[in-house]
Structure formats: structure tokens, C-alpha cells
């Protein structure tokens, strides 16, 4: 219940934070909302020598739209994402996903950037980010680079973040017309994490065919993934319940599902298909409503 000692810095600017990070190297951990890191530190599963608190830096918490692109600052809390009017209108998948994270208190403190950088294999956001084709903006003293979500998640608890880099922003395109999305999740009864979490976004063309379909799945494999098999089965097709059900059967094609006390690999695979179907069906309903 008590973390080990560490050296603490609360930089006031991103530059200062980057400098500290460069100086302290891998012994340092970044503290955002702390809701992934602090529990691990209290159990002493994580014992970083240095903590760099990003909480005092102004300008890392925002949600804005510019020319159809939405950008969200890494320090934006889940609660802010959940309640953002802009997002509810322009990319409702993300608030719907945020609302499924942890509980009220966790959402009030936990941040988008913190959750993504921790890369828990059962975290909710990654599914949505994959479905949104989002880009992660990584900043270091050398400048910034962007990594698409698909490449950002490298393995369990491992991301594309290199030493000295801070995840500062997430960007993606706002929904185009006749787009529907949904996040559907099977909760772990104890931790609330996703045993299976499926984020689906689809866009219909004038004839009702799927002109864009993306499905991101979390909780199932060591890292979140795009269910490309499902997407291919729907792209350019006239979307209906039957076709969605058929395509959803491909939810775990090419991945080896995880197994733990709550769900065997076989059950996870089956649930991935069920929740993919449910997410897609809900997304379709929403897209059609706009038509």
C-alpha cells in the first residue's frame, strides 16, 4: 500500500520535462493521472527511481477540431473525453469508450496519454484508437514524430515510445457523414478491465454499402489489434445483420487469444466474435439513423 521512495520532479513546461527525461533516462517514469502507474508502485511491482509529473504542464489537456481533424492532448482525462460535446458530436466512439473505463473516480484522474503509454492489454482506449485510425504524436528533444495507432502498440505493456519521448497528443479524423460507431465490452467482474472490448466504426455510401469499416479489439491478445478479417468481409458490401454476423466470425483470425482465470483463449475468441457483431450492429444502426 506504500510506494518505494523516488525522486520527484514537477516540470512546468514540456521542454523542461523532456530535458528531465533525457537526463534521467530509463530510471525515470512519467506520471500523468497516475491511475496505471501508482497502483503498480503501491504494490511495488514498479519501483521507478525518478518520477516526472506532467500534471503541472499547461497546455497538454485539450480537445479541438481543426479542418475535420480532431486532436486531444495527452493529459486529457477520461472524464473530459467522456463528457466532451465536441467528441460526442464528431467522434462519439471515443466518449463511449471512455465511459467504459474503470469507474467515475478513475475517469476523473486517469488520462488518455497515461493509459495509452501504459499499454495494458485489456485497456479500453486502444480499441477505439485503432478503429479511429488515430495517430499518436511523440515528442522528444529532437522534435516530434507521429506513429499510427496500429504501430504504437508493440506488445503487452510495450509501445513505440522510445527513450526520451513523451506521448503528447492523439489525432484522428472526425466522423464523415453516414458514419456510425460503437464500443461493446465484456467487463472483467473484478477489475472492470475488458476481457473483450470491441470498437467499431463504419461509414455507409449512398447505396448502403460499407465504404469504410474499422474494428479495433482489445483484451483478447497481448496487444490490441485491428480485426482486418472482419473489415475485409464488410468493405464494399451491403451491410446487414447477416453479413455482420458472418464477418464477425473472423474477429480473432491471425491472433492467439490470451488465457487467464476469467476467460480461456477459446472463450475469449468466441466473445470477440459476439462483441464484434454487437458493436458492428450498433454502429450500423447509428449510421443508418443518420441516413
Amino acid at each position: 500500500m506504500i510506494p518505494a521512495s523516488f525522486e520527484y520532479f514537477a516540470p512546468r513546461s514540456l521542454e523542461e520535462a523532456l530535458q528531465l527525461l533525457a537526463h534521467h533516462g530509463t530510471e525515470a517514469k512519467l506520471l500523468a493521472g497516475g491511475h496505471s502507474l501508482l497502483p503498480m508502485m503501491k504494490l511495488r511491482l514498479a519501483t521507478p527511481r525518478t518520477l516526472i509529473d506532467l500534471g503541472r504542464i499547461r497546455g497538454l489537456s485539450y480537445i479541438r477540431e481543426d479542418g475535420g481533424r480532431i486532436s486531444i492532448g495527452a493529459m486529457t482525462t477520461h472524464a473530459e473525453v467522456e463528457s466532451s460535446e465536441l467528441l460526442r458530436r464528431r467522434a462519439p466512439l471515443l466518449p463511449e469508450t471512455a465511459a467504459e473505463i474503470g469507474d467515475v473516480q478513475v475517469r476523473n484522474r486517469g488520462t488518455l496519454g497515461g493509459s495509452l503509454a501504459h499499454a495494458d492489454p485489456a485497456a479500453d482506449y486502444p480499441a477505439a484508437l485503432l478503429a479511429l485510425d488515430a495517430e499518436c504524436v511523440l515528442t522528444s528533444q529532437k522534435g516530434t514524430r507521429t506513429v499510427v495507432a496500429k504501430d504504437f502498440f508493440v506488445d503487452m505493456l510495450t509501445t513505440a515510445l522510445q527513450a526520451g519521448e513523451i506521448l503528447t497528443e492523439v489525432r484522428f479524423a472526425a466522423d464523415s457523414p453516414r458514419t456510425g460507431s460503437a464500443y461493446r465490452k465484456l467487463h472483467h467482474p473484478a477489475s472492470g478491465f475488458a476481457i473483450v472490448g470491441v470498437a467499431a466504426r463504419l461509414t455507409l455510401d449512398a447505396t448502403g454499402k460499407g465504404s469504410a469499416v474499422s474494428v479495433g479489439i482489445t483484451g483478447v491478445a497481448p496487444k490490441p489489434y485491428r480485426a482486418t478479417g472482419v473489415e475485409r468481409g464488410l468493405l464494399g458490401q451491403t451491410l446487414d445483420a447477416k453479413r455482420i454476423a458472418e464477418a464477425s466470425a473472423q474477429a480473432t483470425r491471425g491472433v492467439e487469444p490470451l488465457s487467464d482465470l476469467q476467460a480461456s483463449a477459446r472463450y475469449r475468441a468466441a466473445m470477440a466474435a459476439v462483441f464484434t457483431r454487437r458493436a458492428l450492429a450498433a454502429a450500423l444502426g447509428r449510421a443508418q439513423k443518420q441516413g
Binding site: 504494490l43 472483467h188 473484478a190 477489475s191 482465470l261
Partner: peptide, 11 residues
């Protein structure tokens, strides 16, 4: 004990 915390043991 594999269910050693409230993370794994659901009440």
C-alpha cells in the same frame, strides 16, 4: 493464491 487482490477476486 491467484486471486490475491480485488483486481482478481470479484465482490
Amino acid at each position: 493464491l491467484l486471486t490475491g487482490e480485488l483486481m482478481d477476486y470479484a465482490i
